[in-house]
């Protein structure tokens, strides 16, 4: 009787979260794997094709291109946002009047939705009447076509994304900087270490746990990049900026290739998992814990 009552208590506390997690994460996960083994357009009955969707993906130029564009995004975005965020964090990590106000301003884009950020930047980077090209024109530089030019579409997305996330990286790194004991710096100063030396020998090594965190989160989020690309370029022009999640979206809702979209989802999941695991292993070599 007591055991039964105890089980009842556990159920009361656990079921409100267990049922939704089961229904909206675990079941879809399993059904996604199942769908990926079929040919299906959401309407007619599913047709079993085994692993053919996966085999086709390897040969599918559009999906490969989407993977490449996603990597291109990461390669452009990550250094930009990290170096930018680190510079701001280092600068704002000192006691100065107005420091909190400045932090608040740098953080503002983080709370803004991606759709708003994408639209505002799309307007700033408008090739004919946007502000950026107008300013470039005044100093005699012909501005590029930005999101209308296949070569510049992805850089446009990267620029807007880095602007939005700078404040986020800043906050994470500031928290890391504040956990470095001030005595370390003082001891080094007494030993005659200059500012640059203190940065490379103390600050940067002790900041590696936060750096690791920023890198992991940025990689996980970066592989799932969608909103800003969808709004700014729609994957274009001519597919030149289509990323993985957008490809999944298109395959499902435009081309009705749900099986192959599910297969691509699983590839994306495995890639994210793989990158996280590999980073988890690599971190032992470069992350210093104080």
């Amino acid at each position: 009787m007591r055991g039964l009552r105890k089980a009842g208590v556990v159920a009361v506390f656990l079921l409100p979260s267990a049922v939704p997690l089961l229904l909206f994460i675990i079941v879809p996960m399993v059904s996604s794997a199942w769908i990926s083994l079929h040919e299906w357009n959401l309407i007619s009955p599913m047709k079993w094709v085994g692993l053919r969707n996966y085999a086709d993906l390897a040969r599918d130029g559009d999906s490969r291109a989407a993977l490449l564009h996603t990597l291109e995004y990461l390669v452009g975005y990550l250094p930009l946002v990290y170096v930018g965020g680190l510079s701001i964090a280092l600068g704002l990590n000192r006691v100065m009047p107005g420091r909190n106000l400045l932090r608040g301003v740098y953080f503002l884009p983080v709370v803004t939705s991606w759709v708003v950020v994408a639209l505002v930047w799309k307007w700033l980077l408008n090739p004919s009447s946007g502000l950026v090209n107008d300013l470039l024109g005044r100093i005699g530089v012909p501005g590029p076509g930005w999101w209308t030019d296949p070569a510049w579409a992805m850089p446009s997305v990267i620029l807007a994304s880095a602007w939005k996330d700078l404040g986020y990286v800043m906050v994470i790194l500031l928290a890391g900087l504040q956990s470095i004991p001030a005595e370390y710096h003082e001891a080094a100063r007494i030993d005659g270490a200059g500012a640059w030396q203190r940065f490379t020998q103390i600050t940067f090594p002790l900041l590696t746990p936060s750096t690791y965190f920023v890198v992991i989160i940025s990689l996980i989020n970066g592989f799932q990049v969608f909103d800003q690309v969808f709004v700014m370029t729609g994957g274009g022009p001519a597919g030149s900026s289509q990323v993985l999640v957008e490809r999944i979206y298109d395959q499902t809702f435009r081309y009705g290739q749900v099986g192959s979209a599910s297969a691509l989802s699983w590839v994306l999941f495995v890639v994210i998992l793989g990158v996280t695991l590999v980073q988890g292993r690599l971190q032992r070599r470069w992350v210093t814990y104080a």
Binding site: S32, L42, I248, Y249, T252, I272
Partner: peptide
């Protein structure tokens, strides 16, 4: 570990 982005298709079906 399972991002919503990856679950969008089966969730829609559900």
């Amino acid at each position: 570990m399972m991002p919503l982005q990856v679950l969008v298709v089966p969730l829609f079906v559900e």
